[in-house]
């Protein structure tokens, strides 16, 4: 760790956020196995430092556009674990009333604009959110998360071009976990240095170790400051997902040795060990965080279990806005 040391409270918060994601998703796996959660579910385990490092640097007025692997972003942004778990249960107490599921988490209050399950589909949306902020003289930034697979989509190139052309306050965060589902980056990109693709569009860019939450935080702070001044920024976070792509993935495309190697750089362990060595955090801090998080996760399950099914008579609601008579 070469970056500035956080103080105790800051460090504890970063640890807490990452542990929340980890434990929440472990519980999701359990609930998936119990068939409480169905459909596609994509885990963020291993990538926690990215969402934590970035989103902790955002302001409440900023917007977030995320992908179908967005439980982590939603939790760090402040959406309640209960509303997310209930969504995955398909209950109407869920953050999208059970209409979205794991891949489509939404929260207007925190400007969390989804949960987009079309690879690359969120980037144009982020451009528009930033354009609206700029045209209305709001100093907000839109943080747009996507995987390295999205870089192959035309939307990546179209959106970087527009962002630079129109000087939009967008932070593009490429979560490069090396695999687009099961196809390695080297099989899909002629140029695998993703951040440098920003140069082609005059988008400032940087690469950061996505397993190091302090490095991500520092890079994010700079990138967000740049974006807030109307210069888009592309931040490539090199990371790794420890789990399969989704719950239907036999992981035939990567070796166990490779996974084991990456797990040695577990972002939570890496961060805690460094903080402990620096006397910023103690084992007691870690234990307390685990206790708090365990309760939050258990509560989220209880909330989802207690949730209710929306009546089928409501099926066709929310296709068009329900305009109340004035």
């Amino acid at each position: 760790m070469t970056t500035a040391q956080p103080d105790h409270d800051q460090a504890r918060r970063l640890l807490w956020q990452m542990v929340r994601i980890r434990r929440f998703e472990e519980k999701c796996v359990e609930m998936y196995s119990a068939q409480k959660i169905r459909g596609f579910m994509h885990l963020y385990i291993g990538e926690e430092a990215v969402a934590t490092g970035i989103i902790e640097q955002l302001r409440p007025e900023d917007a977030i556009v995320a992908t179908y692997r967005e439980h982590g972003q939603a939790l760090v942004r402040g959406m309640s674990a209960g509303s997310i778990m209930a969504e995955m249960y398909g209950k109407q107490e869920g953050c999208a009333r059970g209409r979205g599921g794991s891949m489509h988490l939404f929260d207007a209050k925190t400007r969390f604009c989804g949960g987009n399950a079309i690879v690359g589909g969120g980037l144009p949306l982020a451009i528009g959110l930033a354009l609206a902020d700029k045209m209305q003289n709001r100093k907000a930034v839109t943080a747009c998360f996507f995987g390295e697979g999205a870089v192959a989509e035309g939307e990546f190139h179209e959106s970087l071009n527009l962002a630079a052309l129109w000087k939009l306050p967008v932070l593009f965060i490429c979560e490069n976990n090396l695999y687009a589902m099961g196809t390695a980056l080297r099989y899909t990109e002629s140029k695998t240095e993703i951040a440098k693709k920003g140069d082609a569009y005059n988008v400032a860019n940087a690469v950061v170790d996505g397993m190091d939450v302090l490095a991500v935080s520092e890079a994010a702070a700079k990138a967000i400051a740049t974006a807030r001044e109307g210069q888009p920024f592309l931040l490539e976070c090199r990371t790794y997902r420890f789990r399969a792509h989704s719950m239907f993935d036999a992981e035939l495309y990567r070796s166990k040795d490779e996974v084991t190697e990456w797990k040695k750089r577990d972002p939570i362990t890496l961060f805690f060990d460094a903080m402990k060595a620096a006397n910023v955090l103690s084992d007691a801090d870690y234990a307390a965080v685990e206790t708090e998080v365990a309760k939050e996760v258990d509560d989220s399950v209880a909330y989802a279990e207690a949730g209710t099914w929306e009546p089928v008579s409501d099926l066709t609601r929310f296709v068009y806005s329900e305009v109340t008579a004035s």
Binding site: L125, L129, A132, M135, E158, L162, L165
Partner: peptide, 27 residues
């Protein structure tokens, strides 16, 4: 600002319209 020429990028500028609409504009 209000009569905005776009690149030949239908997906991006339609998506930008959606985002701008979410952000309070009427594109």
């Amino acid at each position: 600002e209000r009569i905005r020429d776009t690149p030949l990028a239908e997906s991006a500028f339609v998506g930008a319209g959606i985002g701008a609409a979410l952000g309070g504009m009427r594109p």
